[in-house]
Every structure is written in structure tokens, then in C-alpha cells.
């Protein structure tokens, strides 16, 4: 059985947030295969979020490489990395990623609008995605007027509206109760499988990690172990 080439591959990532501080990442190695769901777990402060930010091109590592296909994300310009975020990657965090001034519909349409899609088309797709995540009824509301679970679904709809190659989710259900969390996770997994989107999912919750094909554990800024890799493909 041949393994397909990884979608994103990070090698020997080192990242510190300023002189005198212990590095948040020290030689982390991780890859994300096309279409797989990868859970990243580990103790608080171990560097999971930093790893996700490096892989998604939100920040650049101090050293090491991040390959996306034939591209080096760690060397790409800010503009190119922004472009990737609105075309091929989606990001969801625990909170705060929605624009407070825009309605749910505009928020979901945002990556398309920024890319120059016509307003009508962008709103059409945005409406469909809101529907799929069960928050069509909230389309005209602004993030401040929604519940936490609804907000996370809108954030997911936005992350998926471009049918990205990769979805980066940093504790997307961290602020939700277990029922709401489960609903959001089911919707996420379903949508990702259907679009063939690979998911990198940070979580503290074993129940959430159970949705993944594979699990990587981060400790002290490095990937300490992986399980489940042999189970798939």
C-alpha cells in the first residue's frame, strides 16, 4: 500500500516569542495527509496552537520548513499566505475569529468577497453553508447576538465555504457544553469528509479526539508520539 504524499509537511520547527523566553516549539515534526482528520493533543502550553499557526501560515517559524505541495509556506510572502487562507485553508478557533460588525451571512461570505467574487454569488454559497450547519435562521444576526454554539457553526461555515484543502481548528468546541460540542463536531467531520478536506484539530477532549483518524501528542514544543497512523489507508 503506497502512502500518498502529504498535503502539508512541517520539519524541525523552532519558534520562540521573544528573546529570553523558552521556545514554544523546539524541533516539531508533523505532517497532514490529504483528507485525513488529525487530532493534536497535549498539555496546556506545550505549543499546540503555535504549531497550528505555523502550519497554516498565520505565523512563520524561526527555523525549520513548512511545505504545502511544492511551496515553502515558511518563506512565502504575507500576501501569498493571506491568499491561501482565503482560498485553500480554513481556520476556526475557540472564539473571536468572526468579524463582530458583520452579519453571519457576510461573515461566511467574507473569504469569497475578499477574493473578488460577486456579492450575489458569495451570499448564495454562504447561505448554503449556513444551511448545512443548521444556522440558516441566524443569517442576519451579528456574532454578539448568537449563542456560542451557533457562533462556532457560523465560523465553521466560513472556514468551509471555499471548500478548502485543509481546515485548521484550535479547540473549536472548547467553549461549548458536551452536547453542543458533539453537534459541532459531527457537522465538521461530515462536511470535511464530503469535501475531501484535511482537518488539523487541536483538542483537550478525548471524546473529540475520537473523531480523528490519527492523533499526535505535543509535549514541550515537539511531537512526542502518534497513534492510529496505521489504522487508515
Amino acid at each position: 500500500m503506497t502512502t500518498p504524499p502529504p498535503l502539508i509537511e512541517a520539519r524541525d520547527l523552532v519558534k520562540s516569542y521573544g528573546a529570553g523566553q523558552a521556545p514554544a516549539l523546539r524541533g516539531a515534526i508533523l505532517h497532514l495527509a490529504p483528507g485525513e482528520i488529525l487530532a493534536v493533543t497535549g498539555p496546556s502550553g506545550s505549543g499546540k496552537s503555535t504549531l497550528l499557526h505555523c502550519l497554516s501560515g498565520i505565523v512563520t517559524p524561526d527555523s525549520g520548513s513548512v511545505r504545502y505541495g511544492s511551496e515553502r509556506l515558511d518563506q512565502a510572502t504575507e500576501t501569498r499566505r493571506s491568499e491561501l487562507r482565503r482560498t485553500e485553508f480554513g481556520v476556526v478557533f475557540q472564539f473571536g475569529q468572526l468579524v463582530g460588525e458583520l452579519t453571519a451571512l457576510d461573515n461566511v461570505a467574507l473569504p469569497l468577497l475578499l477574493a473578488g467574487t460577486s456579492r450575489k454569488k458569495a451570499h448564495e454559497s454562504a447561505g448554503e453553508w449556513l444551511e448545512r450547519f443548521g444556522v440558516r435562521g441566524q443569517a442576519a444576526l451579528r456574532p454578539g447576538e448568537m449563542s456560542g454554539g451557533q457562533g462556532q457553526r457560523v465560523a465553521l461555515a466560513r472556514a468551509m465555504v471555499t471548500r478548502p484543502k485543509a481546515l485548521f481548528a484550535d479547540e473549536p468546541t472548547g467553549a461549548l457544553d458536551s452536547l453542543a460540542g458533539e453537534q459541532v463536531m459531527t457537522a465538521l467531520v461530515h462536511a470535511a469528509r464530503e469535501s475531501g478536506t484535511a482537518v488539523l484539530l487541536i483538542t483537550h477532549d478525548a471524546q473529540v479526539a475520537a473523531y480523528a483518524d490519527r492523533e499526535a501528542t505535543v509535549r514541550d514544543g515537539a511531537v512526542a508520539g502518534e497513534t492510529g497512523a496505521e489504522v487508515i489507508r
Binding site: I58, S82, G96, G100, E101, L110, L114
Partner: peptide, 16 residues
């Protein structure tokens, strides 16, 4: 600042 950061996260370039 918060709003601009959110736009950036959604893929707006610094110039935009």
C-alpha cells in the same frame, strides 16, 4: 484592531 485582525484571519492581505 480586533476587527482588522479578524479580516486578516479570513484571508485579507495587510494591504487590503
Amino acid at each position: 484592531e480586533r476587527r482588522l485582525a479578524a479580516l486578516r484571519l479570513a484571508g485579507a492581505t495587510p494591504r487590503q
